[in-house]
Computed example of a mutant assay.
Amino acid sequence: MSVLVEFAMFPTDKGESVSPYVSRIIKMIDESGVNYKLTPMGTVFEVETMEEALKIIDQAYKQLEKDCNRVYSVVKFDIRKGKSGRLKQKIESVEKKLGKQVSK
């Protein structure tokens, strides 16, 4: 099974720039070994189970709860049985249909 997750999470009580807080979350994901992609508006990662996905989201929140009084988050899931590697595969499929060189 493949669980693709796109999410954004950040404090709303820490001023205009929240990159120091977002960086904590990205560091935790990176150290977890989960395949992910950081984007300007959030992060996408892929795991094999919903339990793993929810654990990452919970750990992300724990990076902020200690010194943030208000946290905003939005989360989207794409769950598909019998597939894996979709973080890269979905982009390659669209690029191929557009006649573009496939991303490495």
Rank of each mutant, 00 (worst) to 15 (best):
L87D: 01
D58L: 13
Y36C: 03
K62L: 09
V34N: 02
M28Y: 03
P11I: 14
T12P: 00
S19M: 06
V71S: 04
I79H: 08
D13T: 11
Y36I: 11
T43A: 03
F77R: 14
M28N: 04
I57T: 06
V102G: 01
Y72A: 15
V3T: 06
K62Q: 11
D67V: 12
L98Q: 08
E46R: 10
E16T: 14
S93C: 04
M41S: 11
G33M: 08
E92D: 10
Q101V: 15
I56T: 01
F77N: 07
S103W: 09
E65W: 06
T43F: 03
D13G: 10
K96W: 09
L38S: 05
V94W: 06
M50Q: 07
V18N: 00
K83P: 00
Q101G: 10
K55Y: 07
E31D: 11
K83F: 12
E48R: 14
Q59K: 15
K55P: 00
V71R: 05
L54P: 00
S23H: 12
F7L: 12
M28L: 10
K14N: 02
C68V: 13
S17C: 08
P40Q: 08
K55S: 13
I29F: 05
K83M: 13
R80G: 05
F45D: 00
S103I: 14
K104Q: 13
R70W: 07
R70D: 03
T12S: 12
L87S: 04
P11E: 06
K14R: 12
Q63D: 01
V18H: 01
Q101K: 14
A8W: 07
E6T: 07
V71W: 03
E16M: 15
I25M: 03
A8Y: 05
G42D: 01
V74T: 14
A53L: 05
M28F: 06
A60D: 01
K37M: 11
S93Y: 08
A53N: 01
